[in-house]
Design a protein around this nucleic acid. Sequence first.
DNA 1: TTTTGAGTTAAACAAACGTTTAATTTTGTG
DNA 2: CACAAAATTAAACGTTTGTTTAACTCAAAA
Lengths: 206, 206
Amino acid sequence: MDYNQKQVQIFEVAERLFAENGYDGTSIRSIAKQADINIAMISYYFGLKEKLLKQLLNFKTADFTQELEDILSTSQDHFVKLEQIITLIIRRVHKNRRVYKIIHFEYSKTRQQIEFDAYLNNKKKNYTIIECFIKDGQQAGVFSKNVTIQLLLPTVLGTYFNLLYNKKSYEDIYQLDPNISIDDFVHGTLTKHIIRTIKAKLTYED
Amino acid sequence: MDYNQKQVQIFEVAERLFAENGYDGTSIRSIAKQADINIAMISYYFGLKEKLLKQLLNFKTADFTQELEDILSTSQDHFVKLEQIITLIIRRVHKNRRVYKIIHFEYSKTRQQIEFDAYLNNKKKNYTIIECFIKDGQQAGVFSKNVTIQLLLPTVLGTYFNLLYNKKSYEDIYQLDPNISIDDFVHGTLTKHIIRTIKAKLTYED
DNA sequence: TTTTGAGTTAAACAAACGTTTAATTTTGTG
DNA sequence: CACAAAATTAAACGTTTGTTTAACTCAAAA
């Protein structure tokens, strides 16, 4: 699907506002105003509001299966690959954090208005690849077998998103250095913490 | 603050609907309808919609500092205490998961409408207590010192909430047994996973 | 019995919402 | 240039929103 400059402009503003104020908390009018276009243009291009969101999500969540397979196809050992995979995952969710925030909140609603099929299919594919990698490491004897594999990714992603969603309060509670940018913190301290946590978990024997 | 039966009834319905559809996605009318009262009664009791939410949060997030200190005051070793603390935290967030979902969503908005002072103060107090406990364990030589303490709670809470918010997709991807109730899964498999993860992390040395 | 005040109601309010209309301007093509 | 299609606009549409009004009920107190 190709989008013209104006449509991309609408996507950018919509992404920011949906992430900042929620889907229901964002009006078509406010998107139009900030994108500096007429209200009717949004309906003209995307139809219903929910179709705008659906197309936005598909536009932004491009496939990252390839990057994953690139790492796995190398001849490095399991721990190096593990580090690279975790680094890749965090880099990706951080880059697209606003889109993921929208997804988290809309997807967790009981009465869903939005279609998530394309996103879910990609997710499933990637999760299966990672599951195979862990099992391979277990059979090779480098990863502990006493692990609930299905809960490793929730730990990786959960740590990142919990920190993101509570950033302001953690900054206050722990008096994190405000001179360190969020990007540096995520790709430095946080990524290291998560890598060490998963490594520890995968080598831990009671 | 004391609330009569009708006010509590409004709280119960509001909590469910806010968690299910978001604050903006829930109308005063839908709350009134499901609580089987007249619309005007909500304004009569709580004033503005945001005041209803504020009072709901204060009503539901009672202090759990005492429970935390009860555990720490025992004479058990650090690892037993650690297990008990994590179990307590998960039990608590799971019991109040709907309230926490509302908080996560509303608190992460850039333009906040709601006051979170009471909630944040409690949080800060509890986090400080836990931080002291970990440092105590490090000085006693039982916990590794190569740990970013501030990121341990995001890992615990993040794992739980990431799983909760993506429950449906994880059920699909990993084909979790649908006969096991969410409560049993959380207090069994998930709690064990998180305890093992944090224990591993706190004893891991490169 | 009268009075008082809290509880409760249907109705109304203006504002904001998503969406559509119909007219106009711009653009590209023969 | 002429013409058709696409882009753009202001205005209006009918709903739904949060909130308020004013009238009413009813139990308890005087």
